[in-house]
């Protein structure tokens, strides 16, 4: 029986939410295609995570228990995945469609003559068990379906929150240690330190289920303290429009839009954001959209499921109170 591989993206020894979402989706797809799901864990900690991976559908776990995986840039992971493809005979791999992992997939595709489809929002089983991928392009204006050419290894970058997490109740997977020999090239680019600047208590906007974002209408950087208070009531990540990051009110790394991050949460709330096309390109795929803006003509109201036309400095503090009351 063929294997479908899922590369587990992890942080601090825990699989990221997107990894469990991928496993849940792969479990259904593999069953339909007559395959089984194998997780791939690169770096230390794979054996400790085996139980949770099994609960979400992994029948097998390939792991490379080595600090080398992240001690050098990208290439050790490519070497290890090449070993995983070879050990499993798999021709399909799902990976988290985030910056660093996309690099791994791009290099792997060149090395094994595969094809890559990034930012996938849905997958279906087609002829011969090959997967077909749905992807939104042009800032969400067009919805496309693609596949990797027959005979090539198919690599699918899955967007966060594209699939629900569903525990299959599976038992601990069979574990297989990968035998990885690093090439000389793999150690050419070193990681000398890792700087963590995000809030430990607040999810990253890339994978948060809820994202709140502030824009020009906030008027100053103190406005973001208000947005952070709102975020912390509902467990949201905090983003910003380019107008706000260019003004220096919030760090560039949280910019949502064409030249910044793309978010696909289940709920997006924009305050003081007009919704210019450059911003929409980074958030239009959110499942639900809330807008608070004093300008009733702001384009964001055209895509909002719920909009409040009003002063955000009146509406947001009140919203925080109301939400706290409802939480009890």
């Amino acid at each position: 029986m063929g294997e479908m591989l899922v590369l587990i993206d992890h942080n601090d020894g825990q699989p990221r939410k997107v990894s469990l979402q991928m496993l849940s989706a792969a479990t259904k797809l593999a069953a339909e295609a007559g395959q089984t799901v194998s997780a791939v864990w690169l770096g230390e900690g794979g054996a400790d995570a085996a139980a949770v991976l099994g609960e979400h559908g992994a029948a097998k776990l390939y792991h490379w228990d080595s600090p080398d995986a992240f001690a050098y840039v990208t290439l050790p992971q490519v070497d290890a995945l090449e070993a995983a493809l070879s050990a499993s005979g798999a021709d399909t791999l799902l990976f988290a469609s985030s910056n660093h992992v996309k690099d791994v997939a791009a290099r792997l595709a060149i090395r094994v003559d595969g094809g890559v489809i990034t930012d996938v929002t849905d997958l279906a089983v087609g002829d011969g068990g090959r997967l077909h991928a749905t992807k939104e392009v042009f800032g969400g204006d067009l919805i496309t379906t693609s596949k990797v050419a027959d005979g090539k290894v198919a690599l699918f970058g899955v967007s966060p929150n594209a699939f629900p997490v569903e525990a299959s109740g599976g038992s601990a997977p069979e574990t297989v240690a990968l035998d990885v020999t690093l090439s000389e090239a793999a150690t050419a680019a070193k990681v000398t330190s890792v700087e963590k600047v995000g809030s430990a208590d607040r999810p990253d906007i890339g994978e948060a289920a809820i994202v709140v974002a502030g824009g020009r209408g906030l008027g100053n950087e103190q406005g973001f303290e208000l947005m952070e208070q709102l975020a912390d009531v509902i467990g949201a990540g905090v983003g910003a429009s380019r107008a706000a990051t260019d003004a220096g009110w919030y760090p560039h790394r949280y910019q949502i839009g064409q030249t910044g991050r793309t978010v696909s949460p289940t709920l997006y709330l924009g305050a003081g954001i007009s919704g210019a096309i450059q911003h929409r390109a980074g958030m239009q795929t959110a499942q639900h959209i809330i807008a608070v803006n004093k300008d009733a003509e702001a384009p964001i109201f055209q895509i909002a499921d719920f909009g409040v036309v009003g002063d955000l400095y009146k509406v947001v503090p009140k919203l925080i109170e109301e939400l706290q009351t409802r939480k009890g």
Binding site: I289, I290, A304, D305, F306, V308, D311
Partner: peptide
């Protein structure tokens, strides 16, 4: 979507 006009007090937050 549902678009509500706030009356200037922030009261529309309750509906949201």
């Amino acid at each position: 979507g549902t678009i509500v006009d706030d009356d200037g007090s922030g009261a529309a937050a309750a509906q949201l």
